[in-house]
Write a protein that binds this DNA or RNA. Structure first.
Lengths: 334, 334
DNA sequence: CTGAAAGCGCTTACAG
DNA sequence: CTGAAAGCGCTTACAG
C-alpha cells in the first residue's frame, strides 16, 4: 500500500499539483467552483492526507514545540505540561515532552535532538548545566522560554513563582499561629536550583522580618532519599523545630512518611506547611495547609509567550522574568 | 542567520554531499581517514546539525511515535507514559503525547494529525468511538497498540490489566477480613470502557465464588463529580455496605473526600480498598490497602511491541491481548 | 574510495 | 483562473 500523494490527487482531479496545493491551503482566490469541487472529490475518494513532513521541510516550520522538564516526578511539571498542551492544541501546535532528570548531559542531548527535529521553539526547565548551549540558542534567536529556574547571564524570558513571597506567606502564617522555631526542608541545592535557593533566602528574610532567631540547623537541603534521615536528625536537636516548611511536593511526601512511621502527630508534635498544593491535601488527616502555585496560569503564559515569539520573531517582551503569585490555602496542619 | 546544510559542509570539506551523508550515517566502508577527518572538522567548525525533517521525508520514517491517552488525569496514564518514554528514549525514538479527554472527536483529530505528521506508530487508549478509523489503520497495517481498553472487532495488540483477577483479589481480601456487604464504585461506564466493565463483571463473579449475595444497589458507576453523592446514597441504604472497592484512583479520592468531610472512619465505619496504588497510600491515615497495577511493565511492553512492529512490518505476535497481573498491597484500610 | 543525479512530497513565485 | 519549474535538505543506487 503506497501512500497517496498530492500528485495522485492532481491526476484524479485533472489539475496540477499547484492547484491542489492552493486548495489545501485555502488560497481559493480565483479558483472556480468546479475545480474546487473536483479536488474535494478526488481527496475524498482517495482518502488523501497531506504529508506534514514534506510541508515542514519546505516551510521550515513544524508546528511543534519541545518541552524539557527537569524532573517529571514533580506533580508541578505534569500540571504545567497540561497547561502548555492546552494552549498549543488551540493553536494547532503539538508538543514533544522530554524529561532531563536533572542531568545536564541528558538535557543537552534533548535540546540538540529537538533542534534537529526542527521544533519551532523550546520551553525548558533548565538544569543550569549547559550555559554555552543556552547562549548559542539566544544568539541564534531561537524561540525560547525558561521555566521555574533563572539562569544568570542568560536573558531569556523566564516564568517563575514569586518564591520569596511564597516562603514569606508560609513563615508569616506559622508565626500567626504562634510558632517560633521554624525549620525548612527541601531537595538538594547542590546545582543551585533557583526556586530552592530563593526559598531558602526568602526563609531567612522572613524570619528577620518577624524578629525570629535564625538557626542554621533548621535548614536542610538533601537528596530525596535522605530527607527522612535529615528530619530525624532535626527533630533530635536539643531544641527541635516546632514547625517545618516543605519546599516541594516530593519533600512533603517524605516528611509525611516519616511522621506516619514514627507516630509524630501533626500539628501537635510538629506543624507542617507545604509548597505545592498536593492532590490529597484536602482529605488528608490532618488536612494540609499549603502554598499553592498557579501552575495552570504559569504554563499558559509560557506557551503564549513562546507562540508569540514563534509567530513574530521581532516580538519584544517588556520584562524578562515573569513572577507569579502564590496562594496560601489554610487547612489544619499548622 | 541561515541554517547550515549538508552542502555547506561538503563545500567546506571539499567533498560531495553524498560523502558527507555517508559519513553522517556511519557508512565508512571505504572512506579514507583523511576524508573522514576533513568532514569531522568541517562539521565542527560550522556547527552543523542535520535536518531530521529532510531525512524523514526521504526515509519515510520519523523516529517518533504518537501516544493518545484517554484521560491524562489518571496517575495511571502518567506512569505509563513515563515507561513508554523510557523505552523509546533508549532506542532513539521520541513520543508525542495527546490527551483525548475521553472524547472520540478529539481522538479522531489527534489520530489524523499524528498520521499526517508521519509518526511511525501509535499507542492508543481507545475511546472506542472511532471503530471505522481503527479499522482503516489495521487495514493499512499501521503499527498500532491499544492500551487498557479492548475494542471488540479490532484485532490489534492490546495491553490490559487482568481486571477480573484484580477485583477478585479485592473481594477475596475483604472476605478474608470478614466483610460480607461489599460495594463497588467506579466512574461512568456509559461508553463501555473495558476495565470498568470487566471490573464490574469480575465483582459479580467474585461474590458468587464467595457465596455472597449480590445486591444491585451496591454497584455505582457515576461521573466523577457525582461520586460523593452516590456514596452518600449507598451509605443511606437500609443495609449499607461495610466495604467499598474504588475502581480507580480518582474514584478513590472522591470517596476519601466524602469520608473525611462526613467523619466516616476507615475501616471501622467503612472499609476501603482501591485499585491503583496511589502515591499517598503508604502514609495516609489509615494506610490504604490497594491493588497495584504493574504500570511500568505494561507501558514498557506496549512500547516494545510497537517498536518491534515498526522495525519489522512482518512481525507477527502470538496473542493479541496481553494481560498483566495485579498485586495486592495490604495495609490498614480494610 | 567518491561524486552526479534523481527523488522524497510538498509550496510558491512567476508566467500566461 | 491554472500550470511548469525550482527548491526545501536530505539519502541512495549507481557509475567510475
Amino acid at each position: 500500500m503506497k501512500a497517496i500523494t498530492i500528485s495522485d490527487v492532481a491526476k484524479q482531479a485533472n489539475v496540477s499539483k499547484s492547484t491542489v496545493s492552493q486548495y489545501l491551503n485555502k488560497r481559493y482566490d480565483y479558483m472556480s467552483e468546479k475545480t474546487k469541487e473536483r479536488i474535494r472529490q478526488a481527496i475524498e475518494e482517495l482518502g488523501y492526507q497531506p504529508n506534514i513532513v514534506a510541508r515542514s521541510l519546505k516551510q521550515k516550520s513544524t508546528s511543534t514545540i519541545g518541552v524539557i522538564v527537569a524532573n517529571i516526578l514533580h506533580a508541578f511539571s505534569t500540571q504545567v505540561i497540561r497547561a502548555i498542551e492546552d494552549i498549543c492544541n488551540e493553536q494547532g501546535f503539538h508538543i514533544i515532552v522530554c524529561n532531563a532528570d536533572d542531568e545536564p548531559e541528558k538535557e543537552k542531548n534533548y535540546i540538540e535532538m529537538l533542534i534537529a527535529k526542527q521544533v519551532d521553539g523550546l520551553i525548558i526547565f533548565p538544569t543550569g548545566g549547559n550555559i554555552d548551549l543556552y547562549k548559542s540558542l539566544m544568539k541564534r534567536k531561537y524561540p525560547l522560554v525558561f521555566f521555574d529556574r533563572v539562569v544568570e547571564e542568560i536573558p531569556a524570558s523566564t516564568i517563575m513563582l514569586n518564591n520569596e513571597k511564597a516562603i514569606k506567606m508560609a513563615v508569616d502564617h506559622l508565626v500567626d499561629k504562634g510558632y517560633e522555631q521554624i525549620g525548612i526542608m527541601t531537595t538538594s541545592i547542590s546545582r543551585h536550583v533557583t526556586p530552592r535557593i530563593e526559598r531558602i533566602n526568602g526563609y531567612k528574610k522572613a524570619l528577620q522580618e518577624n524578629n525570629l532567631d535564625f538557626n542554621e540547623e533548621y535548614i536542610s537541603t538533601l537528596d530525596l532519599h535522605h530527607i527522612q534521615q535529615g528530619l530525624k536528625e532535626m527533630l533530635s536537636l536539643e531544641c527541635p523545630p516546632q514547625a517545618i516548611i516543605a519546599g516541594n511536593d516530593l519533600t512533603l511526601m517524605e516528611i509525611l512518611k516519616f511522621t506516619k512511621e514514627n507516630k509524630v502527630s501533626i500539628p501537635e508534635d510538629l506543624a507542617i506547611i507545604g509548597i505545592d498544593d498536593v492532590s490529597f491535601a484536602s482529605f488528608f488527616t490532618p488536612q494540609l495547609t499549603t502554598i499553592a502555585q498557579p501552575t495552570f496560569d504559569m504554563g499558559k503564559r509560557a506557551a503564549e509567550l513562546l507562540l508569540n515569539k514563534i509567530k513574530d520573531p521581532e516580538y519584544q517582551e517588556k520584562t524578562t522574568v515573569y513572577r507569579f503569585e502564590p496562594e496560601l490555602v489554610i487547612r489544619n496542619s499548622c
